[in-house]
């Protein structure tokens, strides 16, 4: 009897299939229209532009084949400096941010009083994360007479000029990234809550200490979450822009001239839209390639629990 109702429901669903879709499409309509208009079409156009010398002010753009790419890879010294700065930023900021996120998520994965307040407090920096205000605040904190140097001064240490030194400027941005660990933290937190309690209980009975429990239960059970967070952070790491645009403007000595910032400069300050589009597409390819590599590697280190939904 149960089977009969099920198949009946299925039939009705099939007959209404088209109509249901119509409503669905109407609802995603605004989003879809905006996506096509403001994302898909511009991205497609930029692919075409990357083979032209389109300049916003000066010319409509003639087809120049691969000249933009040739110039980028073999003639543009600043291009390679921007690649360098971006790689350094990604290599350090992504693991640091994930580490912080995981550590704080573990601290907050308890049922103490007021834990909700702490969760909100730790998430707050990420909400205001990419904003101008935070970047401006960071300038003040790491400025010559800023909070950091003031504190060091009290301790009797003469702090360096963080934003002015080529060795230290990028680190202020990496620390800023690590501080904005809120969204991976929330995802980790959700993941931690999904790990069945009985695993920890039986491990405890078997005499495993906290470190062993973390290493043998928490980490393996979290690998799908780590995988997801890694991909998301990798992508957003490569696209870093606002922080360098406001805090350091790519200086000093191009040590914080992140890729997206350089693309922006070429596109909107020198008006070289063709060249900038080519640079943007190389970035897209690199991110796609790295993401694919991480996906490939995932079969070696990501463990999915067989009995999903247990």
């Amino acid at each position: 009897m149960a089977a009969a109702t099920l198949s009946k429901a299925k039939r009705r669903k099939q007959s209404n299939f088209g109509q249901d879709n119509l409503v669905g499409y109407l609802f995603i309509g605004p989003w879809l229209a905006a996506f096509l208009l403001f994302t898909f079409i511009p991205i497609s156009v930029s692919l075409l532009l990357s083979f032209t010398d389109y300049n916003v002010l000066a010319n409509a753009g003639e087809f120049i084949g691969l000249d933009n790419f040739q110039r980028m890879f073999f003639e543009d010294r600043r291009y390679w400096r921007s690649v360098n700065a971006t790689l350094k930023y990604v290599v350090f900021s992504v693991p640091l941010r994930l580490l912080f996120a995981l550590a704080v998520a573990m601290l907050l994965n308890t049922y103490r009083r007021g834990v909700g307040v702490y969760r909100a407090a730790f998430y707050a920096p990420s909400i205001i994360g990419g904003s101008i205000a935070v970047a401006v605040m960071w300038r003040e904190i790491f400025g010559n007479d800023g909070l950091v140097n003031f504190t060091l001064n009290v301790l009797g240490i003469q702090g360096p000029n963080w934003l002015g030194r080529p060795e230290t400027a990028i680190w202020t941005l990496i620390i800023l990234a690590a501080w904005q660990f809120g969204s991976p933290m929330l995802i980790f937190l959700a993941g931690l809550k999904n790990i069945p309690k009985h695993l920890y209980e039986s491990a405890e009975i078997d005499g495993a200490n906290a470190w062993q429990r973390f290493l043998r239960i928490t980490l393996p059970m979290l690998t799908p979450i780590i995988f997801f967070n890694l991909i998301m952070q990798l992508i957003s790491g490569f696209m870093v822009f606002t922080q360098a645009f406001i805090v350091t403007q790519g200086r000093p000595l191009d040590t914080t001239l992140f890729y997206a910032l350089y693309v922006y400069r070429r596109a909107f300050e020198q008006n070289e839209m063709g060249y900038a589009s080519a640079m943007a597409w190389v970035m897209l390819m690199v991110i796609a390639l790295l993401t694919a590599l991480v996906f490939r590697s995932s079969s070696y280190w990501v463990h999915y629990e067989a009995g999903e939904g247990a």
Binding site: R139, N144, N161, W162, L163, G164, Q249, R251, P252
Partner: peptide
């Protein structure tokens, strides 16, 4: 003023 200082202050 040192160039370093002017960079740190920004424009």
């Amino acid at each position: 003023q040192s160039y370093e200082d002017s960079v740190a202050r920004g424009d």
